[in-house]
Amino acid sequence: MTAPGPRAETPAGPERAQPVIRLTGLTKRFGSGPDARTALDQISFDVTGGEVVALLGLSGSGKSTLLAQLNGLRRPTSGTGTVLGTDLARTGDAGLRELRRRIGFVFQQFHLVGRLTVLENVCTGALGSLRGPRLGLFTYPRSIRERALDGLERVGLAGHAFQRADTLSGGQQQRVAVARSLMQRPELLLADEPVASLDPESSAQIMRLLRDVADQGRLTVLCSLHQVDVALSWADRIIGLRQGRVVMDLTTRDIDRAEVMRLYTEVGADPAPLPATVAPSTGTR
């Protein structure tokens, strides 16, 4: 599969000064007492503006939980996390909702309402910026509908605008989901295994699209993946998780495939950092 390579240069300018994401000892436990399970264990790293990061790790290593934390869908149990200047632990529900409006999220299972038109599904991405509930395409302002059409054209699906979403293929549905997240004009884009349920051709299209969106909008992107080759050719940086801990954090230029594959081959190994795979300063270059 072909995906655009990492950027030759990392973004420069004021946006580099303040990290978009800063996590320090972030921990998330589910349950309590003897049944408690630690999903994220002392996660620390920074992500600066414009970086395209791939999260790798086995199923259950904490990738999805981490993305949900970053989006404010779940709160950390301990540690601190700041995303787009918002403190994840201390901000109230309204503040977290405000944060979510600035973060696009692409899911593995697309999460479209099958019986609604493609255009209406895309319009729902703008709900956070609108007041009050909306029921039916005509309840969205024309400006939003036009922006949604722009978004659909951007993902190559403008001709399907008035088709029911469940009549599209998996790859097309994922492109609709990307268009929906673009309606937020996000400053940060999170993607949770966006190509896990797609065929190689559709996967290539989606990854190319995400990269293009990131490059053109100078977007910061965090994307969990299972495909090592895709991650190496697509991302600027790879963060590897094992049993809820960061065990690898390097730029794609500084790492080779064999090293990354150790995340998957050394199953059951101690979740200590893999030798020579974590950059000295919390992973930033």
Binding site: R101, R102, F107, H111, T124, R180
Partner: peptide, 11 residues
């Protein structure tokens, strides 16, 4: 799923 997606978008 769709509801989670809207919640994630700040709806």
């Amino acid at each position: 799923g769709p509801r989670t997606a809207l919640r994630a978008a700040g709806a």
